[in-house]
Amino acid sequence: MSGSEKANPDLQTIIRQWLKTGSPSGAETEPGSGERSSEQGQKAQAERLSKDAYFSMMRTFQAVSSAMSEPPVLDALFRSANILPDIVSTFVITGLKGYFALHQQVIDKMGKIGSHTDAYSFDNIDQEALRVWSEIYKNEIRQYFNVPQLGLSRFYQERVNQALDKFNIFSSALAEFLQLLSLPFEKSFRVLQEKIEDLTRTGSLPEDSRGYYQMWVKILEGHFMTLFQSPEYNKSLGETMTALEDYISARNRILQDMLQSMPVPTRKEMDDLYKEIYLLKKKVRDLEKANGKQ
């Protein structure tokens, strides 16, 4: 570098002259040139820093220029110009391949959606739809929420993703559960219709609305009792409760992160405190009882 400066003395001279002309007073901006006020001193220092920066930049430019002007480097430059189209096409091809692979992956996952339900089977479409959606979510979509996160905020981002995932699972479990709860209504109306048909045939229809209501509510109660004892209902209730608990825990973890940065105690800190108080009180109670017996 110093060699380059020595090799190009004219360039330094040119810059010095240019800087001289660039200063507002037109005076030479050499450091320590007479007494200045503190404002002037700051100004001079700023000018000196900018001058240094210019010099540094020019020196780098000189070094690169001189290196580039060497014959072997020029040869390499010309050669690279010849292979530039190949490099560009390699970049483009790699990018497109990546895009197509990702696209293919999504298409594959979309294609699998169909494999969770029978084609043209509409017998249980109401009941099946929610279950199918739940399976699609669990098998094909939720993995995106589990993609490993990177960087300083990875743990926070992971917890947010987990909460979103748990919320989606809870929503689908709740929808299935509510759908199960609606079944007795649907079935009880069907049974009521059949019963009315029978009563019509025998000519013993109730004569007021209260009679019909009593008939229906009894059928409904029976259907609920049957449903509640079924393994499907118990499974769905269990899954819904578990999903709710998972979601609340995940949500609480995010809240914990948020509260951690605020000047308020977190639930975990309060838990620790409560436990200490509880144990202390228990100890005092036992001691009091022991003293009382003595």
């Binding site: 509510v217 409904l220 109660e221 609920f224 009792m225 509640f228 409760m241 608990e245 609340i248 825990s249």
Partner: peptide
């Protein structure tokens, strides 16, 4: 899991459970 999540057993949740024992009535 329930207690680890809720801390105490919520009264409203229990009430909902009791209602589900016989929703028709």
């Amino acid at each position: 899991k329930m207690i680890d999540t809720f801390g105490n057993m919520p009264g409203d949740l229990m009430n909902f459970g009791f209602l589900l024992l016989n929703p028709a009535r």
